[in-house]
Design a protein around this nucleic acid. Sequence first.
DNA 1: CACTCTACCTGTGCGC
DNA 2: TGCGCACAGGTAGAGT
Length: 275
Amino acid sequence: MPELPEVESVLQCLTSSNPSIINRQVQQVCILRNSVVDGDQQQLEQRLTGAVCQDVVRHGKYLFFRFIQPEDNQRVVWLALHLRMTGRLFLLPEDQAVIRHTRFYFQLDQGLVLRFDDPRAFGRIWLVSQPEQVTSTLGPDALKTGQQQFLKRLSATNRQLKPLLLDQAFLAGIGNIYADEALFKAGLHPLRKSGELSRTEMVRLYKAVSDVLSTAVSAKGANIDGVFEAGSYPVTVYGRAGQPCVKCGSEIIKERFAQRGTHFCPCCQPFEGSI
DNA sequence: CACTCTACCTGTGCGC
DNA sequence: TGCGCACAGGTAGAGT
């Protein structure tokens, strides 16, 4: 499931590789499944046709494409995108515009297409006037949060750690995989309460979140049996129920906490936390 | 406020 | 072989 590192990888692919989406002009917008557009589809098609992509930014798991419309007095419009669970985005030669699960594609100049594939069809695009329209409801980006800010936000609540890490209003970008990975790395049980952590444990959680995410970004995402082919970040607990813990050899447990499959080591992440 | 449940989707993998 | 079904999960929104 695309989380912050996977979305960052998509951003780098679109903007830093050759070819790049920067300065490409949209010649045609093709929506193959109407539900992929949130809001007015006609307006989206109208505003983006002829528009030139100037920049792409990321906040948490969201991507924002900055377009200007040369035919309309350089008017700026932002396209917001969320990949949700199975969405994937590619910049490709135009002869690869559509495959089985393509939900939309943009015909671009220079013989390119921007193609969005999404088997489960949860992913969405919509227009915003500013990214802040979306990001104002989110917490700070998980990779751009300093220790002091993290500790301040953490100690302002008293919530179970697993649902807290998944809450995009607390910290933007962490999903089920990296929540489990970070809690394992920090040696904290998923149901420990944020308000009951010692300062040492809070610092450990901050370092674990930062380390897991930045390492995964360098690896271009997680490497999970058959789910992604792109990334090479080696998971330690996620999807490893029944297998030995990489630290102590105990059996990794999977339980359902807060309606999410949660993987942890009962030995390295005891509920009665150590100080 | 903290937490739970459901809807949205469809491919996968299991048991029978 | 094939059928039915639980399951996976990010987010929004309603409910406890």
